[in-house]
């Protein structure tokens, strides 16, 4: 390859990084270019893995049960413990999930404290510019308005998520997402309590293996980062428990009711007492490691 071609190829690779307006993911279509003289068609479609925000999850959970139990959240005082980047990022996710929980369950004063904790972790991760200072005022003005707090905390999460993606800090984002998922499941398992057949919260937890798979697949892009690799291995231990759940297979059907489709059927996952206890213990163990900043 001559020097001119090398420059063009370098430009191709650099533009692949920049052209992805949402961060590293969108670059995939661009990186299919391997030389300046030919265009290689992708053989397999690139898959992007999306994860619901903690707010989306808690909004659904709130409709089926649970109550406000502020003691379940990671104490704000723990922010002082996090000196390693890995734990800052994981606990940024944990505090974001706590903020979502506090907002959905209308624990107004906690929402303000937890926003400050999220902001502190954000500053330490150098993503403070993702936050809008007016948010504090808006939270203070809406301490008794659950719906407004939900949208404010959702915006905060979006802003941080987009900022990390757009600034090519996907490794930090991967840890944030992992921390958020672990905390959400930890809180819900505590709201659900001990195993009981037909407990709607436990039934919903059984389906969260879907979300966990997407979390892990999303994180794999950043597997080269040792902190991300270690966290994936820990989440895979939870995934293995999900794989042991009883599966009730149902016929897949799609009903068209005019304006809307109804999707039903496919596998439904069910906990037994043992698998539920295995899962809640493993989640608790992992969550304790994260909030105590232990590998």
């Amino acid at each position: 390859m001559n020097k001119g071609s090398r420059i063009v190829l370098a430009a191709a690779l650099m533009s692949a990084t920049i052209a992805g307006c949402g961060g590293g993911e969108e670059t995939s279509s661009v990186t299919t270019v391997v030389d300046t003289n030919q265009v290689v068609e992708p053989t397999e479609p690139k898959v992007f893995y999306q994860i619901p925000t903690p707010n989306e999850f808690f909004s659904v959970i709130k409709e089926i049960g649970g109550k406000s139990r502020p003691e379940l959240m990671n104490p704000v005082a723990n922010t002082e413990k996090y000196t390693e980047t890995r734990f800052k990022a994981l606990n940024f996710g944990i505090y974001s999930a706590d903020l979502a929980y506090a907002s959905c369950y209308e624990i107004g004063q906690s929402a303000l404290e937890y926003f400050k904790a999220v902001e502190k972790m954000g500053n330490e991760l150098d993503i403070s510019s993702a936050f809008d200072e007016s948010v504090f005022k808006r939270i203070e003005q809406n301490l008794t308005e659950g719906d407004s707090l939900v949208s404010i905390s959702n915006e905060t999460y979006f802003d941080a998520y987009n900022y990390l993606e757009e600034n090519d800090r996907g490794n930090i984002l991967a840890l944030v997402v992992a921390g958020g998922w672990v905390e959400s499941i930890y809180v819900v398992s505590n709201l659900a309590g001990p195993y009981k057949d037909k407990n709607p919260l436990i039934e919903r937890m059984a389906q969260q293996g879907h979300t966990l798979t997407n979390v892990i697949e999303f994180m794999r892009k950043y597997n080269d980062d040792p902190a991300v690799g270690m966290t994936i291995a820990q989440l895979e231990e939870i995934q293995m428990i999900y794989e042991t759940l009883e599966v009730v297979e149902k016929e897949i059907t799609t009903e068209n009711t005019g304006d809307k489709l109804n999707f039903s059927g496919n596998a439904e996952f069910k906990f037994s007492k043992e698998t539920y206890e295995d899962l809640t213990n493993k989640v608790k163990e992992l969550r304790t490691k994260y909030v105590e900043a232990k590998n």
Binding site: V30, P45, K46, Q50, P52, T53, N154
Partner: peptide, 21 residues
Amino acid sequence: GQSRYGNFAYGDTTEVSFTVF
């Protein structure tokens, strides 16, 4: 938060995996 945007080549196929409740 599962919404996306991005630049893609004409003729490309991409997939977005997302969770619904």
